[in-house]
Write a protein that binds this DNA or RNA. Structure first.
Lengths: 242, 242
DNA sequence: CGGGGAATTGACGCTGTTCAATACTGGTGG
DNA sequence: CCACCAGTATTGAACAGCGTCAATTCCCCG
């Protein structure tokens, strides 16, 4: 039994723009169904031309690129409310892969309808451009972090960004959020070795800026963490929900 | 005297999609004028909400972010045909700055008309989403290069990408293209120090894979350079011209 | 002729990598 | 019930790629 868009639990979060009832109706028609996947399931593959687009409803995932030499760059973490497959939607193919890290529930859309979306509801077309521009924004910041910051600063940056994002859409108890990734995932996201990632996390723990163990991240003093991370604009903008 | 879109010299390049005559007419109306700037002129600033959008007609520039600690990440190089200001157009503000490196000529558009573009010419709205998705694609690749590759591989990656892009839109004599940046610019793009950038360039020169001096880049064997750069998909896709 | 920006080169050291050993966990099959 | 195993986290030690410091050269421009 598929959730109706009008009852979508994500809409309760202040993170997302309010949707007009017409838009809501359109999205309901655009929506093909729902999908539940196990941890480790590939959702989209680099080079493929996926026929489907998704919005993550629950669970978490990873976007990444693989190199011939075996290394992996994690492009970003996928959280509830994120839209997946935009690249396949507007270009011919994906340039990175996406997979589920935990069990996930996803809202499924038909890629073929994307064009009608631009034609019939320009607002939504604009929203898609907005989303793509936001990805660009995020990746520019990630590139800056990996290119210019020390390991400790990078790690602080990632944990601070993740913490704010998760507090906005997942149940959080005080300064604790669930973060069910492996240290290797963070390492691949930040361009660090696994060993040094571990040691850097230990430093943040000693300094009582961030503690991440057993799948739970605790940030007792977000402002100080963001300061160390050289984050200039900590608030995350509200965004459209597809 | 402003160039009419229909006579735009960039349209001759195979790099860009063909434009319908209706689209061409719309763009002509969308176009406010032209701008010529000196080397070093700031075009868009991080944090600002620029009222104008640009398409680079000639000359070259830089997109970059500055950190509090004084370091600079070059996000990408700006070449003829690139569209500038999309972020300011769809979000409230720019998240990086853009400045002219050489003298540039730019086509100027009015940001306020962007919304009417989505409404009246959905094709162009789609093209904008396409452009944003392409930026995302590029930045994902840049992040992967900076995060996972050695200095030599990164440098090869940058020079190979730049070389192909420049051959597509600027006059090139054989394996020679004009590349009027400083080594510091490349260094800031790749997350390397200036000194190591210099030494890495020397290595590429010794190996006769790429020679960049006096503002001119020569790549005698592109395939080998791209192989060293771990580039999986070397051809650059054709793209919309705004 | 003087000065500032850019490129080049050598010496040295630090940040982060690689190698390796240990411990802890949950899952599996005897 | 327990031995076994694979995946993950942790920690120490040695090493190296790249950064920092510094000096020199070249070139353009005033």
């Amino acid at each position: 039994m598929s959730v109706k868009c009008i009852n979508c639990p994500l809409r309760k979060s202040d993170l997302f723009h309010k949707m007009s009832s017409e838009t809501l109706e359109f999205m309901q028609r655009f929506k093909v169904g729902e999908m539940e996947v196990e941890p480790g399931t590939p959702l989209l593959s680099e080079g493929s031309n996926a026929p489907q687009l998704y919005t993550a409803l629950s669970g978490m995932g990873l976007r990444y690129k693989l190199l011939e030499n075996g290394s992996r760059q994690v492009i970003s973490f996928v959280f509830p409310g994120d839209f997946l497959g935009l690249q396949a939607g507007v270009m011919k193919e994906m340039t990175h892969s996406v997979e589920a890290t935990t069990a996930m529930k996803l809202c499924v859309f038909d890629r073929k309808e994307l064009w009608s979306l631009f034609r019939t509801i320009p607002d939504r077309g604009f929203d898609l451009a907005w989303l793509a521009a936001t990805e660009e924004r995020f990746l520019g910041e990630a590139l800056t972090s990996v290119g210019q910051k020390s390991a400790l600063e990078r790690m602080s940056w990632a944990l601070a960004r993740i913490f704010r994002r998760l507090k906005a859409t997942t149940p959080a108890a005080g300064d604790l959020v669930r973060l069910p990734y492996r240290q290797q995932d963070l390492a691949d996201a930040l361009g660090l070795s696994l060993v040094h990632t571990n040691k850097t996390l230990a430093k943040l723990r000693e300094r009582q800026l961030a503690t991440w163990s057993d799948g739970k991240l605790s940030v007792p003093n977000l402002a100080r963490l963001e300061e160390l991370a050289l984050i200039e604009n900590p608030e995350l903008p509200t965004r459209p929900l597809m």
